[in-house]
Amino acid sequence: MSGGRGNPWLISGFLLVVFLLAWHFFTLRAAFDPRGLTEDQLQMMEFNGDIDRTADGGYVWNPEKEKVKGVPGPLAVLDKARIELGEAFVKKGTNDHGIAYLVLYTVSRFAAGFLAASVVAIMLGVLLGLNKVLFRAVNPYIQILKPISPLAWMPLLLYTVKDPKWTAVLVVFMAALWPTLATTAFGVNSLRKDYLHVAAILQLSWFKRLYKVILPGAAPTIVNGLRISFGSALVAVVPAEMLLGELGVGYLSWIEWNNLDISGVIFAILVVGVVGVILDSGFNKLAGLVTYQE
């Protein structure tokens, strides 16, 4: 074993090629073979729409029906992607917006819910982290509320706020709230007493204490909580869109399923993945700015 030599990008690329080839060959269907079928049978199949007669008198599988037979191969998905990306900025109707718009809707929905949840969670977390009695009093409720799936809130939220647009944002909010709240309270609570002692001796105002000592001191822990919240909010936004019928990439996957366009579903899944990766790397950049080493 050379143990760690070699270029990881090369291996990544190789794995991708292997995967695409395997995908391609496993989903490949043999061309239509009319041998052994009577003329009557062929006419019946053409009548049912299973096969099409070509200009030169031969038969091929009907491409429309092919779309929903089995899993589409990478070429079909690529084709779909080309079409979708080609009209990324086109609004065809009230419910048929280009993929760029859908990504924008999802990202802004996600950002609104996540940011609001982070602000609320950090403020509450600092409060609880600084006050042990309050923390002990509130902690049981956090423990009960934390494991509830954010989607479980949806009917109640929809009933309360009426508007599905805000319900989707609130589902993201609920998904992002608890991890940040719990870790912020923990981080502030376990901040080294020495730092607070220094702040006390220097007679810093509570505001300075907060943003010069408490927040930066607890920042690594808070960022860990934000990271968990971020993941859970990203996971929640897709089904929220599906269930609420709000335009977005999650909705795209659902609508393609309703259209029985499996290539479209796979394309939507890929878009969700790409959006996730981009948001995640942006988050990591930000996180790197505020963390420090002991």
Partner: peptide
């Protein structure tokens, strides 16, 4: 009354 701490107590983010 300023303290010099056994554990230094410097803010590691500064």
């Amino acid at each position: 009354r300023m303290v010099v701490f056994q554990t230094f107590s410097l803010m590691p983010w500064m």
